[in-house]
C-alpha cells in the first residue's frame, strides 16, 4: 500500500491514433511506497486515475518479457525498475524505442515475431531418433555453449538499445540473432545450414556495428552482442568454406 502523502510524478508518452496525429506527453501524480515498481505506478494510473492508458504486462517478475518500455530514456522492464530509484522524479515513460507505437506504451511487434519465426527457433535433430534410443545427452561444456543465450525472454529491450535496428527495421537484430546462435551452437541441433542464410544476409550479423548497448540493457545477461559478433567469424568462414568444400557452405 502506498504510504500516505508520498507522491511521484509519472509522465507518459500517450498515443491514441483515433485522437491525435502524433504522441503527446501526459503527466500523472501517483502515490507510491518504497516497494513499488514502475509497472505498479502505471497500474495505479490505469486503475484509479485514467483507465484509457494502454500498456502490456503479465508476470510482474521479469520472466514474461511483456513490460519493456523506455524509463527515463533507457530500455527497462518496468516490473524490475523501482520508483524509489527514480526519485525525486518526474519519471518519463515512453514505448520501447525503435518500434512503431500502436497505442500509448504498446508497440507493434509483428516484425520481431516474423524474424523470430524465420530462424526456426527450435531444435532440428541431426537424424531421426526413436524413443528406444533414449534422450539426447549433452556434456556440461556443451550446455555452457548455449545456456546464457537460451535465457532470452523476447522482451526486445536489446532492439530498443540498437541504433542500427532503429535506422533499419529490416535488421534481424540482437535478440533474434542471439537465439539463432543458441540453436546453431547446440550440440543436438542439425539445422545450422537452414539458419546460416539468415545469418549471412546483409540484414543478418553484418548490419551490426558492435555498438554493444544490447548486452548492457539485457535483463537476462544473454549478451546478444557476443552472439552476433562471434557469428561474423562463422559467417566469413561459411563464405570461404564454399571454395574448399561444396558441402561446407550453405549455398
Amino acid at each position: 500500500m502506498p504510504d500516505a502523502g508520498r507522491t511521484i510524478e509519472i509522465q507518459v508518452l500517450r498515443y491514441r491514433p483515433e485522437q491525435e496525429d502524433a504522441p503527446v506527453w501526459q503527466s500523472y501524480t501517483v502515490p507510491f511506497s518504497d516497494d513499488m515498481s514502475v509497472l505498479q505506478g502505471l497500474q495505479h494510473i490505469k486503475d484509479d486515475i485514467d483507465g484509457t492508458l494502454s500498456f502490456r504486462w503479465s508476470c510482474r517478475m521479469a520472466i514474461c518479457g511483456s513490460c519493456g518500455m523506455m524509463v527515463n530514456g533507457k530500455p527497462k522492464l518496468s516490473c524490475q525498475t523501482f520508483l524509489r530509484d527514480l526519485l525525486p522524479g518526474p519519471v518519463r515513460i515512453e514505448a520501447l524505442a525503435h518500434f512503431p507505437i500502436e497505442r500509448d506504451l504498446v508497440v507493434n511487434v509483428d516484425g520481431f515475431v516474423k524474424k523470430l519465426e524465420g530462424i526456426k527457433p527450435y531444435l532440428i535433430p541431426k537424424e531421426p531418433r526413436t524413443l528406444a534410443e533414449g534422450e539426447y545427452l549433452q556434456t556440461p561444456a556443451q550446455l555452457e555453449q548455449i545456456e546464457q543465450f537460451s535465457s532470452c525472454i523476447n522482451c526486445m529491450l536489446c532492439y530498443a538499445a540498437c541504433p542500427q535496428f532503429g535506422l533499419n527495421a529490416d535488421f534481424t537484430g540482437p535478440g533474434v540473432l542471439a537465439l539463432l546462435h543458441r540453436y546453431n551452437a547446440d550440440s543436438r541441433d542439425g539445422g545450422r545450414a537452414q539458419r546460416m542464410e539468415v545469418l549471412n544476409a546483409e540484414e543478418g550479423v553484418w548490419s551490426c556495428t558492435a555498438v554493444g548497448y544490447c548486452s548492457e540493457v539485457c535483463p537476462k545477461h544473454v549478451d546478444p552482442a557476443n552472439a552476433v559478433n562471434q557469428n561474423k567469424v562463422n559467417s566469413a568462414m561459411d563464405y570461404f568454406l564454399r571454395f574448399l568444400s561444396p558441402k561446407g557452405a550453405t549455398r
Binding site: P17, P23, G73, A97, P100, I101, P163, L167, Y213
Partner: peptide, 19 residues
Amino acid sequence: PAVGYRRPMRGWWRRDPFF
C-alpha cells in the same frame, strides 16, 4: 494505421551517453 506511429531517429546518437 496498419503499423503504428514511427518515431524519428534524427539525433539518435545524442540520446544516450552510451551512443
